[in-house]
């Protein structure tokens, strides 16, 4: 498992990157945290001509709250997501997701942009981006555009990214005081990809009524699955045992999971229902939980 002979270019600016892409064309492969790419090189699953290291490009770094938007630079490492005070306050779901992402060594190198661009359907961050209704800021030599995370993932390891295009940042509406969020997953061992997982986001008003539910599942499809029917079953209802049961039942129509090494589709369906119940139970008022 040795890499093929390969070129390396360090881009210090976006212009460097566009220049490298012009020079090397399709042979250029962007390198950020490298936590997926380097393994595929060792397996010789891909043989790019040149790696273009984007980790020194300043525009892709940093976390900031500006004009009512939380902007997370694509190069923000998983470990940084977990300890950033702005993220803890305005996107607590992402902070809560970090301990589930692989192991510390990987979290120290892997980036949010890399995770979203790779689009593993069992990964946590794509599901969080969908659940939080994130907007992805995309850049290329041709210009920029913004797309919703919900439409960004187009299939197994597939996204809307065009050749030469990169994710520059993830933009999120800051969490409102009414927002409740939770992430839960079932994996064989800590750090493994989830057999099934849920990133749950909704708003609860003082009366316990649900607004804007965005239950999003991972590890149960070819991309993060926004559970439209389950969300519809919750919207506008007071969150109680009956509402949770209704959402769990509606979930059936949202999922069409594949089999994997760990079990058949019906196991993933079952686990998704269990996770839905457990996640929503966390949002119940204390008296409901006791009951």
């Amino acid at each position: 498992m040795k890499w093929p002979a390969i070129g390396y270019v360090r881009a210090r600016s976006l212009d460097d990157l566009w220049e490298a892409q012009r020079t090397h064309g399709a042979a250029a492969q962007v390198l950020a945290g490298g936590q997926t790419l380097l393994a595929t090189l060792a397996f010789r699953l891909s043989e790019p001509g040149v790696l273009v290291d984007i980790t020194r490009i300043p525009e892709l770094r940093g976390v900031a709250l500006r004009d009512g938007v939380l902007r997370i630079g694509a190069l923000t490492r998983h470990a940084e997501l977990g300890r950033d005070p702005l993220i803890a306050r305005h996107a607590p779901l992402i902070a809560a997701a970090v301990p589930y992402i692989a192991h510390p060594a990987i979290r120290n190198r892997g980036t949010i942009g890399g995770s979203l661009a790779y689009a593993d359907p069992a990964a946590e961050l794509p599901a969080c981006a969908v659940a939080l209704d994130a907007t992805l800021h995309l850049l290329s030599a041709r210009g920029e555009r913004r797309v919703k995370a919900e439409g960004f993932f187009t299939g197994l390891l597939s996204t809307l990214l065009e050749p030469g295009e990169i994710i520059a940042a993830v933009e999120l509406p800051p969490a409102s005081p009414a927002q409740r969020s939770a992430i839960l997953e079932v994996s064989r061992r800590s750090g493994d990809y989830a057999m099934a997982g849920i990133a749950a986001v909704l708003e609860l008003d003082a009366a316990g009524q649900v607004a804007s539910p965005r239950l999003t599942f991972f590890g149960v499809g070819d991309r993060p699955v926004l559970a439209t029917r389950a969300n519809a079953a919750l919207a506008g209802r007071v969150l109680d045992a009956a509402a949770i049961a209704a959402a769990a039942e509606a979930l059936e129509g949202d999922l069409d999971p594949p089999a994997d090494l760990h079990g058949p589709p019906e196991m993933k369906r079952h686990l998704a229902r269990v996770l839905l119940r457990r996640a929503l139970a966390q949002f119940l008022p204390a008296r409901e939980k006791a009951a």
Binding site: M195, H262, G263, E266, M267, R269, H270, L271
Partner: peptide, 13 residues
């Protein structure tokens, strides 16, 4: 003893 086998033994899947 995987989750799938235990859930199957329990009749849950």
């Amino acid at each position: 003893f995987t989750p799938a086998r235990i859930l199957r033994a329990l009749g849950r899947i």
